[in-house]
Design a binder for these strands. Structure first.
Length: 481
RNA sequence: GACCCCGUCGUCCAGCGGUCCAGGACUCCGGCCUUUCAAGCCGGCAACGCGGGUUCGAAUCCCGUCGGGGUCACCA
């Protein structure tokens, strides 16, 4: 049996990491078993924007979550944008009315509001039970008179809808909890429930994998599907992503957009891996898995049922692991834009060489690509800017002056300028003055790199070049003297 | 408030009736390495929410309770 799943974001915001995980799980589930479809649930014209729509596609591609059918790649089911299928939803709504599954509702906002308040106060379900529904003749009369009204689905009560959710098991809802929900607004635009269900049916979706926030909407979708005379999909509701404080992940917890992680220097494979591991385990105490390994082992039945806290710290660790696994050239290629961003300009040819030489050294200590720029700033910036804390801590030491000026004179006499010779020279200088490497090298580091935290010193000196190195040492020696 | 879902270290995940005085990862704390910072390696702290059952035996099954989350729009 071939499977058909979809990811259907609304372009009313950037692709959220939670959405990214949902897309990933859909993709993993369908891998090798069927099709992964990307659809745009853009019925909310007021809140949808082109920018968000573009961001979703771009973020999906950046993550490497390719789709088999849908937006931009096309497919046999016509448009994959709901905004282009409006007539179809109206048509279905009319059919449902004709078949007695739905009706034009003339209940006023006030009536509904009052009903809900009263129900709530009495400790009953606030779901609208259709009590203000008019008889067919009256409805026809009002419609004929030119009045407009939304179409509501007529939920049968008493009744119950239950389904077997792949991750949650048997779930059931009493129809007293399901309201006569609007499927078509008075302006004949479809609501989410209608559009989404119609598309799932029309596109032959076999499995709906989505967030748990939609769990209580599922009976509506099932009722609609049945009323349309279609075979219902199998549902799987994923646990929600939470912020560190245990509430639904939102902007106030930090970054939620996939693109924010991209610009913060995260690797897509790391983010994907982390997202996968959040509510699922590849087993065998393993955590680092590639997309293809995930696809091989992924089973919806193994997805966790409890919500997961999104922990950036662990993501950072994982990103560091992925960065270190990159080939040297790959690392250079991927981090270049961050270096140039940090610098505010492009690197020239010589700088590219220095960058390539230094790259392996920063690669093993970076958790994000965004850290690469600041770590190499000393190498490319015209003048060093000294970190006050480092200066305070190191240059105020008694041996600072001696170390810097001795290094300056000894290095000036050095015939060759390579890390090895530099190291030999500086170590003999250290011996001469009876200084430990710890005490003696730090002032030199700060003088040259501007900070007590830097890539390895000797290589830094080599790549910075004789002239600039000596210049910086001399400048600092003068300041200290 | 009603309904639904969930409940193992601070966090994520493993465990699916005995092999668990509970395992892995991140964080944190030590140590080693070391020119700084990282990385790496070694070690440590740290959990089955609570109460009843069922059973020879429960983290694992049942009930209750408490706690957390979600949904209750002519938004998706």
């Amino acid at each position: 049996m071939t499977v058909r799943v979809r990811f259907a974001p609304s372009p009313t915001g950037y692709l959220h990491v939670g959405g990214g995980r949902t897309a990933l799980y859909n993709r993993l589930f369908s891998q090798g078993r069927g099709a992964f479809i990307l659809r745009s649930d853009d019925t909310d014209q007021a809140r949808s924007t082109r920018e968000f729509a573009d961001d979703i596609l771009e973020s999906m591609r950046w993550l490497g979550l390719t789709w088999d059918e849908g937006i931009e790649v096309g497919g046999p089911h016509g448009s994959y944008r709901q905004s282009e299928r409006i007539e179809r939803y109206g048509e279905v709504a009319d059919q449902l009315v004709a078949a007695g599954h739905a009706y034009h509702s003339f209940a006023t906002a006030e009536q509904l509001d009052e009903f809900r308040k009263a129900a709530q106060a009495a400790g009953r379900s606030p779901a609208y039970d259709g009590r203000f529904r008019l008889d067919d003749d009256e409805i026809a009369r009002r419609l004929a008179a030119g009045e407009t009204a939304p179409i509501r689905f007529a939920v049968n009560r008493p009744g119950e809808t239950s389904f077997d959710d792949i991750v949650r098991g048997e779930v059931s809802f009493d129809h007293a909890q399901v309201d006569d929900f609007v499927i078509l607004r008075s302006d004949r635009s479809p609501t989410y429930h209608l559009a989404s269900t119609v598309d799932d049916v029309d596109f032959g979706i076999t499995h709906v994998i989505r967030g748990e926030d939609l769990l209580s909407s599922t009976p509506k979708h099932l009722l609609l599907t049945k009323a349309m005379g279609a075979e219902p999909a199998v549902y799987a509701h994923l646990p929600l992503l939470l912020g560190p404080d245990g509430t639904k992940l939102s902007k106030r917890h930090g970054h939620t957009a996939v693109n924010a992680y991209r610009s913060a220097g995260f690797l897509p494979e790391a983010l994907l891996n982390y997202l996968a591991i959040l509510s699922w385990s590849p087993g065998e105490d393993e955590e680092l898995v590639s997309l293809s390994e995930m696809a091989e082992r992924f089973r919806l039945e193994d997805v966790s049922r409890s919500p997961a806290v999104f922990d950036v710290t662990k993501l950072e660790w994982m990103n560091g692991v992925y960065i270190r696994e990159l080939g040297a050239a790959e690392f250079v290629a991927r981090s270049l834009e961050f270096v140039e961003d940090d610098l505010g300009r492009d690197l020239d040819e010589d700088e590219m060489k220095a960058f390539a030489g230094m790259a392996p050294l920063v690669q093993e200590r970076a958790k994000t690509l965004a850290e690469v720029g600041p770590q190499l700033r000393f190498l490319f910036a015209a003048s060093v800017s000294y970190d006050p804390t480092s200066w305070e801590k190191v240059m105020m030491q008694p041996e600072a002056m001696t170390a810097v000026s001795a290094a300056c004179t000894r290095l000036a006499e050095l015939p060759a300028w390579d890390a090895e010779s530099i190291e030999t020279t500086l170590r003999s200088m250290l011996d001469e003055h009876g200084m430990s490497a710890r005490k003696g090298l730090q002032p030199i580091r700060v003088a040259v790199c501007g900070s007590a935290i830097s890539p390895p010193l000797f290589e830094s000196l080599e790549l910075l070049g004789r002239e600039r190195s000596l210049q910086r040492l001399a400048d600092v020696a003068q300041q200290l003297g």
